[in-house]
């Protein structure tokens, strides 16, 4: 039941949005075709802009993995990751995610291409990436912009939420894809 609903949302989301948004835009007198291409241009820029970050992270991750250092780290932390059913390969992602968006994106891309997007690791990495944020960066930028120095409980609350996001990604993937 739960699985069917989740799968239904996954299947329907994109077609419904592709149907609804242009029709809505048309009735609101938006020049849908022209505005679409205008936005699409930005997509090109985004994809090109992330290349340096992807190369930097792919480099570091491939060295860390092909040297065997990753296996060693996974082995040390195995008791914790096994407990929540998380493959050790996802550890670097869990550490990188709150620190750097482009860094985490690089790790996800790497995991997805190395283990395959439809493997359990690929799926978990995708869900983790989609459901958490670059906490330290956002807090620094936002609070920095208004010169607030005493951030009180913002960081502990945000990090607890990240942890909840990571653990629930693992559990949900087991429920849906196992």
């Amino acid at each position: 039941m739960f699985q069917n609903i989740i799968n239904g949302i996954s299947v329907l989301a994109i077609p419904l949005i592709l149907l609804f948004i242009p029709i809505y835009g048309y009735f609101k007198k938006v020049k849908v075709y022209e505005v679409f291409t205008e936005g699409a241009k930005e997509g090109f820029e985004v994809a090109i802009k992330i290349i340096p970050f992807l190369v930097a992270i792919f480099l570091a991750i491939s060295v860390f993995r092909s040297s065997g250092a990753m296996d060693f780290l996974a082995w040390i932390l195995a008791p914790i990751t096994n407990f929540i059913g998380m493959p050790g390969e996802l550890l670097p992602l869990a550490f990188m995610r709150p620190l750097s968006g482009s860094g985490a994106l690089g790790i996800v891309s790497n995991l997805v291409t190395t283990y395959g997007p439809d493997s359990m690791i690929g799926r978990m990495a995708s869900v983790m990436m989609g459901s958490t944020e670059t906490t330290f960066y956002i807090l620094a930028v936002y609070f920095g912009s208004i010169s607030v120095r005493k951030t009180r409980h913002a960081l502990p609350a945000a990090l607890t939420a990240d942890l909840a996001g990571i653990i629930s990604s693992v559990i949900i993937c087991h429920i849906i894809f196992d």
Binding site: Y24, E38, G39, K41
Partner: peptide, 16 residues
């Protein structure tokens, strides 16, 4: 990315 940002531009302009 081009496809998605194109659709989102329509959402933005239409006041959705």
């Amino acid at each position: 990315m081009a496809l998605w940002l194109g659709i989102m531009k329509i959402a933005e302009k239409s006041g959705l």
